[in-house]
Simulated scan of single mutants.
Amino acid sequence: MYRIVTLFALVAVSFGASLKNCNPFENVKATIYTGSENDPQIVTLTSKTDLSDAYKVEIENQKIDELCNGALAHLKKLDTLMIKNSNLKSIAPGSFEGSDELRVLDLTDNEIKQLPAGVFNNLNIRRVNLTNNQISDVDSSAFDNMPKLQTVELSDNRITKFDPAWFSNSPLVYRIVLDRNQVKSLPKDALKHLAESSTRKQKIQLWLSENQINDVHPLAFRNIDEIEALWLDQNKIVALSDTTLQGVKLGRLSLNENMLTCISDIFLSNLSVKDLMLDMNPMDCDCLRKIRKWAASNSVDMTAIRRGLECARESINKAFKAQKQYYEDKLEIERRF
């Protein structure tokens, strides 16, 4: 019993000490806004208490290895926080606990490697920008229970998996940006928690350009009624199931620079889109002409300029060859007679 109590006491003391010693902002330069946007103060921080009256904080080109538990907790006026290019490697759960007014969080150009559960949950953040870090691991519940969250930007990281468990009970999410990662597939019900939302006003935007996607599950977008923009360009998609986008009303669909040789008639009949981008695919020219005809008859703005020019060039070369062959045959006949 004595040992258990002693162990508990040691853990409690250690935990309390770690919280007490959590001061990642000592000697960090910051631009602080407490009133007008036109009246910033540039200060050297001693601790987070220097941020008590700030509604906007900008920190750039500093050295902050870690946001520890409580690092930015209970800052009641803080609305916008930017920590850029400051060697930030990790964010502990509880870093922002109680900072209920925080709306915009920009942690771009750092060295963050993972997003565990408990960092953002139950906060009122609307926009999280984590572009250009080293993130490879995003916990399935990292963005759960965020009632005000709208935009998540995770471009230029090392994410390999698109997790359909993301965004549970975060009903306002509409813009997800994952360009230039290493995502290999879009799974079944990829956006299932977005499909469940009845309170979101904005149309969904999903950005997955320059990944390694070679497989899109036939039910990846099940129960999604409308997508404003779906960017799947510069991936490795060889084919799409006939029903992949059935029932989805699309504003823009970009499939540029994939490995598509054709799109089936059934896929086209199921497709509802305003702007279709298919350039720089190894598209069969007969198939491309078929798609152009479909687009014209359905008032779809279709772009496939480079491949279209290649097909036109092939047709011209084919016509020239046929004409040349005709005259050669004619001359041969004349020589005989």
Results as ranks from 00 to 15, higher is better:
Lys184Leu: 13
Ser185Arg: 09
Ser185Phe: 01
Ser185Pro: 00
Ser185Gly: 01
Leu186Trp: 13
Leu186Val: 14
Leu186Pro: 01
Pro187Glu: 09
Lys188Thr: 14
Lys188Tyr: 09
Lys188Ser: 15
Asp189Tyr: 11
Ala190Phe: 03
Ala190Arg: 06
Ala190Asp: 12
Leu191Thr: 10
Leu191Cys: 06
Leu191Glu: 01
Lys192Gln: 12
Lys192Asn: 00
Lys192Asp: 02
Lys192Pro: 01
His193Pro: 13
His193Ser: 06
Leu194Arg: 08
Leu194Val: 15
Leu194Tyr: 12
Leu194Asn: 06
Ala195Ser: 08
Ala195Asp: 13
Ser197Leu: 09
Ser197Gly: 05
Ser197Asp: 14
Ser197Phe: 11
Ser198Ala: 10
Ser198Trp: 07
Ser198Thr: 15
Thr199Lys: 13
Thr199Leu: 13
Thr199Ile: 14
Arg200Lys: 15
Arg200Ile: 07
Arg200Trp: 07
Arg200Ala: 12
Lys201Gly: 00
Gln202Glu: 14
Gln202Arg: 10
Gln202Ser: 12
Lys203Trp: 08
Ile204Cys: 04
Ile204Gly: 00
Ile204Arg: 00
Ile204Val: 10
Gln205His: 00
Gln205Asp: 04
Leu206Met: 08
Leu206Val: 14
Leu206Lys: 13
Leu208Ile: 07
Ser209Asn: 09
Ser209Asp: 11
Ser209Gln: 12
Ser209Lys: 13
Ser209Ile: 12
Glu210Cys: 07
Glu210Arg: 03
Glu210Asn: 05
Asn211Glu: 09
Gln212Arg: 15
Gln212Pro: 01
Gln212Leu: 13
Ile213Arg: 06
Ile213Lys: 04
Ile213Leu: 09
Asn214Cys: 06
Asn214Val: 02
Asp215Tyr: 13
Asp215Arg: 10
Asp215Leu: 01
Asp215Pro: 01
Val216His: 12
Val216Tyr: 07
His217Cys: 03
His217Gln: 10
His217Asn: 15
Pro218Glu: 05
Pro218Ile: 08
Pro218Ala: 11
Leu219Asp: 15
Leu219Met: 12
Leu219Ser: 10
Ala220Phe: 04
Ala220His: 02
Ala220Arg: 03
Ala220Gln: 02
Ala220Val: 06
Arg222Glu: 08
Arg222Ser: 07
Arg222Gly: 03
Ile224Gly: 05
Ile224Lys: 12
Asp225Thr: 03
Asp225Pro: 00
Asp225Ala: 04
Glu226Tyr: 10
Glu226His: 14
Glu226Gln: 14
Ile227Phe: 03
Ile227Leu: 04
Ile227Tyr: 04
Ile227Gln: 01
Ile227His: 01
Glu228Lys: 15
Glu228Ile: 06
Ala229His: 09
Ala229Trp: 08
Leu230Asp: 04
Leu230Cys: 11
Trp231Asp: 09
Trp231Gln: 10
Leu232Val: 09
Asp233Gln: 10
Gln234Phe: 09
Gln234Arg: 15
Gln234His: 15
Asn235Tyr: 11
Lys236Trp: 13
